[in-house]
Every structure is written in structure tokens, then in C-alpha cells.
Design a binder for these strands. Sequence first.
DNA 1: TGTACATCAGTGAACGCGCGTTCACTGATGTAC
DNA 2: TGTACATCAGTGAACGCGCGTTCACTGATGTAC
Lengths: 231, 231
Amino acid sequence: MSPETGVRAANRARMEERILRLAGQHLARDGAAALSLRAIARDLGVASSAVYRYVDSRDELLTRLIVAAYDSLGDAVDAALAGVDDPAHQFGTIARTLRTWALAHPEQYALIYGSPVPGYAAPSDRTNPAGTRITTRLLQALVALPVRAAPAVAPLVGTGGIGALLDDARVEALGIGALELTLGLAAWDMVRGALTSEVFGQYGAAAFSDPAAHFEVIVALAGALVGIDAG
Amino acid sequence: MSPETGVRAANRARMEERILRLAGQHLARDGAAALSLRAIARDLGVASSAVYRYVDSRDELLTRLIVAAYDSLGDAVDAALAGVDDPAHQFGTIARTLRTWALAHPEQYALIYGSPVPGYAAPSDRTNPAGTRITTRLLQALVALPVRAAPAVAPLVGTGGIGALLDDARVEALGIGALELTLGLAAWDMVRGALTSEVFGQYGAAAFSDPAAHFEVIVALAGALVGIDAG
DNA sequence: TGTACATCAGTGAACGCGCGTTCACTGATGTAC
DNA sequence: TGTACATCAGTGAACGCGCGTTCACTGATGTAC
């Protein structure tokens, strides 16, 4: 039997899958800081040392969870974008997909868009490929758009935003201008800021009566910033 | 000796202060999840049980840290606003003060504007008074302003934002309109979204060459949203 | 001003728990001839 | 097809650590008469 299709390889793959799924459940229930290899071994019905056959360390498992979260979101965005050819609607589609995904997976959202896990630094060589997927889609949408910055807004950007992110290889590759980039980032910050408030419940008792409607307004305003109708 | 000025009362006050300061240092170094009463007792040079003379439990200390963080930020904002009478400049002042404070105290910023601490729910009766200080200042600035929504933007809000936050007592008390409120929240979300990216380093390797300049652009754009010149 | 009592701060041992990680080991599954 | 060997999965005990919280206690500081 070839090593690729052997019983061992299949078991290994299934086991890695189970571990990642259980880790995801623990993450959702108790947060990243409480992620425990022993707890996962317990759920697996296996000695705690057995987990080390599949995972190098706790931190390495955390890295896998981050990558998995990025990929889960990336897949959702790609799927949603599949039917949207009009670049003017892509921005709104990305934003709405992010919201749906974040509300369904608040802890994974916290993992990648919330405060960093203290004492843990993600190895960027493993995290970056998955992490840049959404941002890349966003930049692509901005490039494809005829960004017609509102005349009232363009002068505000002035030369201040020029230096922003210009060292990023993707930006150079896409050939996006400083104005479009700055406006796009501002619009994206607004969407993420609103979403963070909603997902983390930061308005406390003063809840929105209709968060979804409010988010639609945010998307419309963000779209207006980059000069498009994002509906 | 009266109990207010006695040696015991003074010692108590000094001890509570030391505990809160040490807790703040631990928070800054290791994050909220790692906050430990035993570690604080060690730094204090005291038996771990002694801390319980001053603190009910670990969670209670966390609550105090949150209140302290809100107050630290609130004090900074109030001080910065002292010299600013023109309501048109108040929004920008609040935003810039938030940035300065957040960069100086990233972990406290994470505590109040980042992901929630898992397994801990802040008792809102203790957290609210300090927590609403900045938001109240923001609302006051919006009310004092002649919010002249850009004609292109106003229709986007439509009736969607109407329901937002209308159950909040402060909003009713201030008599702020739905349009102003929605635009104000959107602007504030943008500021906080941008700041979160910067403080938590979420753009990774693709760093801004001049984050302060970029933030100024964000403030200008956010100001434009509410129809003012925030410079 | 002096004495009897109450209050408080801090001690140190203990309970019971959880964690990450290592290590020598057994038994089963695969591989090479 | 059968046997000898290598590889792998999983065990269970152990190391050393940290945590929150309780409890009976000593000694000092305050209070009331």
C-alpha cells in the first residue's frame, strides 16, 4: 500500500481533523487563552501524551486554528463573491459575508480581528497566506471599481495617506492608487469597527433595536466613501 | 481618631492603590487572561491569602481594572477637551486623545475595546458609569454641532438607522436625532476600526509608513461624515 | 490616663484543581526480502 | 506467501509548575469606659 492511501495515513488525517474540530469547539466555548491540549485529549478519549503525535505544541495548534479561521472566512467570502460580477456590489458582499460569518463564529472572529493572544506571536509565514485572502479580495474589488471619490472627500486625503501601505507587495502588484487605497481602508475600518461593536456587545445595555438594518446603513456609508453604490 | 483619617484607613487606601497599580502592570505585561492574585501577592511581598483583605476575588479585581481603564481614558479625554470650546473640533480631539491613550496603554485598550475576557462578564452596574463617559462626551459634541449631513449621504441612512439605540436614556435626554446619531456612530466606528488595526498590528508585515498621518486622514474623513471639519 | 475588649492585617498550611511536556514502554500496522 | 524487521499510535506515570480560595491562627492597632 502506498503511504498516501494506506490505512495509517487515512487514520492520521481523520485524527488531525478530529483534533482541529474539537479545538475549534473549545475555542468557541472558552476562548483562545483557555485552549488546552489535555482537555482535547480527554474529549478524544485518549492519553494526554497521545495528542503530541499530531501536534507539536499548544502554540502550534493555536496557529492551525488561526489559519483555519482565516480559511473558513475566506471560503465564505469566495463563495459569496462567486455570483457577483459587478465590482460595485463586491464591497458590500464582502462586508455582509464578514458579518454573517462573525456572528456565527464570534470566537474565531475574535481570534483574527480581536485582541492578540498574550504571550503568543503567530508565525507569519504560516499565517499570512490564509490571512491575506480577504484583504486581497477587497483590494481587487477596489481596483476593478471606477473609484470616483466624492469631490468633497478627495482633498481631505491630501498627501497624508500617500505613504500608507505602499511597501506592500500586493498593493504594488495591483497598481492601486494612494487615494483609492486610503479610502478603501477607511471604509473597511468602518465596517470592522461597527462589526466589532456588535459582535462583542460593546454598547452594553444600549442595544440596537435592529442591528442588521444599522449594518446596512454602515455598508452604504462605507460604499459612499469609495464613491460607489454598495447595495 | 476618626475612621476616615486613622492610620488603618490610610494604610488600607495605600494598599488598595498598590494592588491596583501592580495589577495594571501585570495586565500590561501578560494580558487580562493571565491576571493572577498570587502573582500580585508575590510582588507585594505578602502571603497570597492577604490579598483577600482588599479584593473579593480575581473577577472583582478585573472589574476594578476595567473601571480604572475607563476612568484613565475618560480623564485624558476630559483634559484634552478642556481647551476646546468649538464643538466642531471636539470630535477630532476625542479621536486623537483615544489614539494617544490606546498606544500608551494597549492592554487596557484591549480590555475595554477588544475581545471580551472569556468566562468573565463585567457587572454593568459597576462598569457603566465609567464606561459611558467617552460616549457621552461624543454625543454631547454631536448635539452641540450643527450637523449638516452631506446631501449625498443623508438619503443613505434612510429609515434604516432610525431604530438604532433609541432605547438609550442618554440619547433621549440629549434629544439627538436619528440621522445625527447614526452618522456619529458610523464615524466613531471608523475611528475605532482604524485604531484597532494599528494598536493590534493587524496589518502584519504590511505596516503603514506613517500611521499618525494615516490616522489624521481617518479623522478628517470621519469628520466629513458628520458634516464637519474636524481639523 | 489606663485598662479590657473588639477589630483588623497578615501568616502559613492546606484543598483540589488544571496545565504542558517528556519518557520508557507495549502492541499493532506496515515493508522488504 | 511467509517471515524478520522497522515504523508508528497510543499508554501511563511522572516532573514541575501555577492557580483561586478557605481557614484557624497570631499580633498589632484601635475603641469605650
